[in-house]
Simulated assay, not measured.
Amino acid sequence: MSAAVDPAPVIELAVLELLRNSDYSIEELTPWHFGMLADAGAADLDFVFTLSDTADGEALPEWPGLPITSHWRCPGPILVEGEAWERKQAFMQVLTGLERRLNIFINLPFASLDRICLQNQVREIGETQDA
């Protein structure tokens, strides 16, 4: 019987390599569990986007600040089997989709949208199929 291997360090290294190769600064990045953002005393949040299909429909914590939330479904790149280049490509596709969605998001006319309209806009961004 073989011992289970925690894939988290390998995934973390793959993500850091992808970000570095995409010219993102990674020197001060620290991975956090989402629970740390909801702990007592955590800073108020304006927006929360869940990405994993396992998070869709799950009971999530009450986020501080009552942020606008949306599920921005992304395929799970860690589920891709095959050659190393195929796994890297899966991570790159997720990054590209997130960059596209975030570019749409940051260009929303925040000052002219009320909370309900903003929630709808954020949800629509997450529903795009080509992310």
Rank of each mutant, 00 (worst) to 15 (best):
F47D: 06
P61Y: 07
F110L: 08
D39V: 07
P7Q: 01
P31Y: 03
A84C: 01
I106W: 03
P67I: 00
G35K: 01
L51Q: 12
E83R: 12
S70P: 03
L60H: 10
V10P: 00
Q89P: 00
A38Q: 04
E127F: 08
L60C: 03
L118W: 07
L51N: 11
P75S: 13
E58A: 15
W32F: 15
I116K: 13
V10S: 15
G57Q: 10
D130P: 04
P67Y: 02
T54Y: 12
E27S: 14
R100K: 14
S25M: 09
S70R: 06
N107R: 01
M92C: 02
D114F: 06
Q129F: 08
D6V: 05
L51F: 11
V94W: 04
L51S: 11
A40K: 13
W63C: 03
A111W: 03
N21K: 14
F110M: 06
T54N: 14
G76A: 15
L108K: 02
N120D: 14
L19G: 02
Y24V: 05
D46I: 01
F49C: 10
L66S: 10
I106C: 05
T96I: 05
D6H: 07
N103Y: 05
A43P: 05
E28D: 11
F47H: 08
I106E: 05
F91G: 04
P75Y: 06
T128M: 14
S2F: 13
L16Q: 06
S2K: 13
F47P: 04
P9K: 06
K88W: 08
E127S: 11
L13Q: 14
G97S: 05
L51G: 11
T96F: 09
E86F: 01
R115Q: 09
Q121W: 05
T54E: 15
A42D: 07
G41E: 09
E86D: 03
L66K: 08
A131P: 01
E27A: 14
M1V: 03
L98V: 07
D56M: 09
M1Q: 07
E27G: 14
S52K: 02
R115D: 06
N120F: 06
S112K: 12
T30C: 12
L60K: 11
L98W: 03
